[in-house]
Design a protein around this nucleic acid. Structure first.
Length: 454
DNA sequence: GGACCTTTGAAGGCG
DNA sequence: CGCCTTCAAAGGTCC
């Protein structure tokens, strides 16, 4: 009799598990349409709590994009961050003085870094960490997967044990030298040498003088430890695929503009969760790379933006009309119109605070003012348009970098209005009174497309 | 192949 | 302290 009952109970559990797997997969596909969620990879088998079993389900192939080693740890829990749920994690962590979210207590990290030792040596497949942990929906992934911001963080024993240890700071030693000294030709295993590792013998901090050539070679060998993603970057990562799906756009410049506006239309709570994620990511990054500095990456990108900016400033000062832009006139933002429509499932735009102060006063959004000021200007992305702006007002061109130009930028006649095809941006005056309300201000998508094609 | 475009935020440097 | 610069992601575009 007992055996019959147990069998029946077991069958019920199996049925529940099966149902959960199906519904979870449907949920994921609904939330992230572009997300290719293979059946069976969505829900972790409840009978096998350890993710180790995923190794059998995750194809051991190199993903085109490396997976963020931290992102899977940052379980983007809708349960936790649901707008309906009180953002209790926010208020106590916001520094009332600076308005900047304070570093969390070590214990706060536990829900966000649920990676278990089962991931040791495993490819951090997107769907691997997509499996809800502890019944939580997890952080979304873009259609193309994530790149690997921290190459040296490719899952290894020390890393995974670090994560499995709930990331208690006192248990976080510097990353062990040689993430995979075994030399396993695993695609995700990158150069194990971490720049700042104090225990790294090759660094020889003891003062073992090395020739400049050797130092230079070692410098080249050092993996590029990327900056931790900020809140907006995390938001972009999550929403990019969605925007691309909605807009059939692929150009990141346009997508980013859309995302930038959507970012501002997010409610305080919704932004707060990304700030929270970013804060945790920064903390994790700082703990993994204690000696890493953002300065280390300076110069890694051979950007000529500075030169271009300087050139542009020179042009502005000289009122030069010559456009030396390499790119043709690209109307990014008109394309946004169909995408920023209320059709967005985000819904946050409609839930935006009634007043900018409500949104901008968010302690989690310290740079909102700057962003809003920059928004009107940023709408003119074309160098030609910038040249036009230079004709109208040089102050506009520098308004993004100058916080004192807000009044002039908002009070001056919008250069956008002088453009042949005015972008349906938020009127500058609207910026003073209310957050962007794109759906009502945007013309029809057809008109936008026509404008774009014109 | 690499820089550029675009977005916001973080961080470092400088005056 | 404020301002400026750089970098983080991403993919099309251009050189």
């Amino acid at each position: 009799m007992l055996a019959v009952l147990l069998l029946h109970h077991w069958r019920e559990q199996r049925a529940v598990v099966s149902w959960l797997a199906q519904t979870s997969r449907q949920y994921l596909q609904m939330k992230w349409p572009l997300l290719d969620v293979p059946a069976g990879a969505t829900l972790k088998d409840s009978r096998s709590p350890s993710p180790a079993h995923l190794s059998n389900k995750v194809p051991v192939v190199q993903h085109p994009h490396h997976v963020h080693p931290l992102t899977p740890l940052l379980t983007y829990s809708n349960d936790r961050f649901s707008p309906g749920s009180p953002p209790a994690h926010l208020s106590p962590e916001i520094d009332p003085k600076t308005g900047i979210p304070r570093p969390p207590h070590p214990s706060e990290l536990s829900p966000y870094y649920p990676l278990s030792p089962g991931a040791v040596g495993q490819i951090p497949h997107p769907l691997g960490w997509l499996v809800p942990q502890q019944g939580q929906p997890v952080y979304s992934i873009p259609a193309g997967g994530f790149r690997h911001p921290y190459p040296a963080l490719a899952m290894n024993a020390s890393m995974s044990s670090l994560m499995s240890s709930r990331f208690s700071p006192h248990m976080v030693p510097p990353p062990a030298h040689g993430l995979h000294p075994s030399g396993i030709p695993h695609p995700t295993i990158v150069s194990p040498i971490v720049k700042q590792e104090p225990a790294q013998p090759s660094v020889s901090p003891g003062g073992n003088a090395k020739s400049p050539v050797t130092v230079k070679k070692e410098e080249e060998k050092k993996p590029h430890i990327k900056k931790p993603l900020n809140a907006f970057m995390l938001y972009m990562k999550e929403m990019r695929a969605k925007v691309v799906a909605e807009c059939t756009l692929k150009e990141s410049a346009a997508i980013n503009q859309i995302l930038g506006r959507r970012w501002h239309s997010l409610s305080r709570e919704e932004q707060a969760k990304y700030y929270e994620l970013a804060r945790k990511e920064r903390q994790l990054h700082s703990q993994l790379y204690p000696t890493w500095s953002a300065r280390d990456n300076y110069g890694k990108k051979k950007k000529r933006k500075r030169e271009k900016l300087a050139q542009q400033q020179t042009q502005d000062t000289e009122s030069s009309l010559v456009s030396k832009s390499k790119k043709p006139c690209v109307q990014y933002l008109p394309v946004e119109k169909p995408c920023d429509s209320p059709a967005s499932s985000h819904g946050s735009m409609l839930d935006s605070p009634a007043t900018p102060s409500a949104a901008l006063a968010s302690p989690a959004a310290p740079a909102a003012t700057h962003s809003e000021q920059a928004q009107p200007l940023s709408l003119t992305t074309k160098p030609e348009a910038r040249a036009q702006l230079a004709l109208h007002s040089a102050a506009f061109l520098s308004s993004k970098a100058s916080s004192s130009s807000s009044s002039s930028g908002l009070s001056s006649p919008s250069p956008l209005l002088s453009r042949p095809i005015p972008f349906p941006s938020v009127p500058p005056t609207a910026l003073l009174t209310s957050p962007p309300s794109f759906p009502t201000a945007l013309p029809s998508p057809q008109a936008a497309l026509a404008v774009l094609q014109a």
